[in-house]
Amino acid sequence: MLKKTVKVDNRLRYRIELDHDLCQGHSVCIAEAPALFSLNESNASYDQIQLITSEIDEEQSEAAFRAQKYCPNGVIRVLPIEDS
């Protein structure tokens, strides 16, 4: 079974959606995109991922997609912002 790979489209802007239920605080996301994510000490079983900023600027898009790809739990979804 092959892992999904998503290509960055430079014409688009992206936002991030997190599925907190699934996060176990492995911190792979932080290693990939320290400008986007941090861990929040939580009272639950695991420390929880937190978004530093909801806006991803262009230079951060690649890093955001890498975090999505390598998070072992599928917590992170990078989605294009629909033009309004």
Partner: peptide, 15 residues
């Protein structure tokens, strides 16, 4: 148990 699990994951962090 919750705190023990948290200790376990310390050794599996990315670094």
């Amino acid at each position: 148990e919750r705190q023990q699990l948290k200790i376990q994951i310390q050794g599996l962090k990315h670094d």
